[in-house]
């Protein structure tokens, strides 16, 4: 039987179990937690980007358009493409993270069409 690890979402305080056989995002969706925004689930769109604050994990290929090598090296990865090797403490940092925290819709659709596309792209801060 695969060992299960505990994942803690720092944004919302939610916790859930995740084995090494599934991605952190898949485990979260399975138990209907909502702290990490769900996008394509396949490493391409970047909305489930998290910062791993503590813990060990393995990773699979993620689109370089949304996670740079430098980001990946410092633990900014996509929840859909990481598998825990220990208990994890993570924080959602993708562009929809605030929406999930607020649990509310936009007041103006136009703001969504015109807004600055911040965190979808690799973050370039140094």
């Amino acid at each position: 039987m695969t060992q299960e690890h505990i994942v803690v979402l720092a944004n919302t305080g939610e916790t859930f179990r995740c084995s090494a056989g599934e991605s952190v995002l898949a485990a979260m969706e399975r138990v209907r937690r909502k702290g990490i925004p769900v996008g394509c689930r396949n490493g391409g769109c970047g909305v489930c980007k998290v910062e791993v604050i503590e813990g060990q994990f393995t990773r699979r290929k993620m689109s370089r358009a949304v996670v740079t090598a430098e980001e990946e090296a410092r633990g900014r990865v996509l929840a859909c493409k990481i598998h825990p090797q220990s208990n994890l403490r993570i924080q959602a940092v993708g562009k929809m993270a605030r929406t999930v925290e607020a649990q509310q819709d936009r007041t103006s659709f136009v703001s969504g069409f015109m807004a600055t596309p911040a965190a979808s792209q690799p973050d370039t801060e140094t």
């Binding site: 996008g39 394509c40 391409g44 909305v47 562009k95 936009r106 659709f109 969504g112 069409f113 979808s120």
Partner: peptide, 25 residues
């Protein structure tokens, strides 16, 4: 029009979900 963008995109739900705008490659 902007007011009817929900049913324009998803006629049954009548709501434009965040994923439509934010998830792309």
């Amino acid at each position: 029009t902007e007011q009817e963008i929900g049913p324009a995109i998803f006629y049954h739900d009548r709501k434009l979900n965040e994923r439509f705008l934010q998830v792309f490659t």
